[in-house]
Amino acid sequence: MAMMNRRRVLGLMGAAAFAPASARVMAQASAPSDPFPSRPITLWVPWPAGGATDLTMRLLAELASQRLGQRVLIENRAGAGGTLAMPVLQQAAPDGYTIAQLPQPALRAPHIQRLLWDPIRDTTPIIQLTGVTFGIVVPAASALHGVDDVFAYARANPGRITIATNGVGTTPHVVMDELFARRGLTYVHVPYKGTSEQMLAVSSGQVMVGVNSNGFAPFVDNGALRLLATFGEHRTKRWPQVPTLKELGHGIVATSPYGLVGPSGMAPAVVKVLHDAFRSAMNDPAHVAELAKYDQTLDYLGPEDYGRALREAFAAEKRTVERLGLAKGGG
């Protein structure tokens, strides 16, 4: 009997010895993961460092970092008309630590060429931020003083006028293609990876005309470039003397709203954390003032509405590409 009691005691002691380890394993299995975010977040910007979008996104990332308690690190991946962040998102884990700016060309490119990624299928919408002021600029000393002068020169000098944009398939390129095609005119397209590089080329006379986003603002304000027209619904507050394409009778309005997205399949709770931090950051007076430097204003949409807007824009871009005959390879 004494032996049985001793064995029982030893058994109970053994069970007690193993219990903490077993409990730890069970606790680890059932415990939630570390609160998001627990490490830095990478925000991919598909434009070169130093351009208008890069500068505003860097400030936004800094402000969002303060709210998230973790750094938001900017990575630039320029080229291909602003679409090179898409392959990164497609391959990234949907954990919220990899996000990207999604510009309008990413909604257009799949209709122009065959691509392995899809801007709707492969993303999770987080927040729409703002839109872009596009414009047509020429060197200050240019003899071209209006959009009609550009067409007149192209008509008198077939295939000789050089026009720079920020890449094939970008909004400036599509708009100029449509304007020239309507008139049966041709031009030499000179694509650039970034706005700063392009504006330097135009202001120095290497290219006759530049069409780009509002990164041209400092060059216009310092007198190096002349702004012929903008693409918005109304004239800008910054350059109220400059007409819009719509006002000039061309029937085109293009603002290319953009926002932030993550990989497909992100958890709603993670999306909410990112959305809330970036919404607060985008409304920070410092960010609003930075956007104003490029005549941009806030154009907020939450995840659901932004997702709907992206789907509508994706369908609209397909119609535009088909109308202009830009589709290639059955894309």
Rank of each mutant, 00 (worst) to 15 (best):
S38T: 14
P37Q: 03
W47P: 02
A16K: 02
F18H: 10
R39C: 08
L68S: 08
S22P: 01
L59A: 03
A29Q: 13
P48N: 06
A15W: 00
G69W: 08
S30K: 08
P20V: 07
I74P: 06
A31V: 09
P40T: 09
A19Y: 08
T56G: 01
L55Y: 04
W47G: 03
P37A: 10
V25D: 14
P32D: 11
S65V: 10
A23P: 10
P20S: 12
A16S: 13
G51F: 02
D54C: 03
F36R: 04
Q28I: 10
T56F: 03
M57W: 00
A27C: 11
L73V: 14
G69M: 11
D34K: 12
I41V: 14
P40Q: 05
G69V: 12
G69D: 02
Q28E: 15
I74G: 04
V72M: 07
A15P: 00
I41W: 01
A17Y: 01
S33V: 06
S33F: 05
L55C: 10
S30F: 12
A27W: 12
P46W: 01
A52N: 05
A17N: 02
P37K: 07
A17G: 12
P37W: 00
A19D: 05
G69N: 08
L60S: 03
P48Q: 04
D34R: 10
L59T: 02
L63I: 08
D34E: 13
P40G: 13
P46Y: 01
S65D: 11
A52F: 05
A29S: 15
G69F: 07
A16R: 03
L60Y: 04
A52C: 09
P32A: 07
A21R: 07
P32W: 11
S22H: 09
A27Q: 11
G50H: 00
D54L: 03
Q66F: 09
A49T: 10
V72H: 06
A61V: 01
D54K: 02
D34T: 13
P32T: 10
A19W: 09
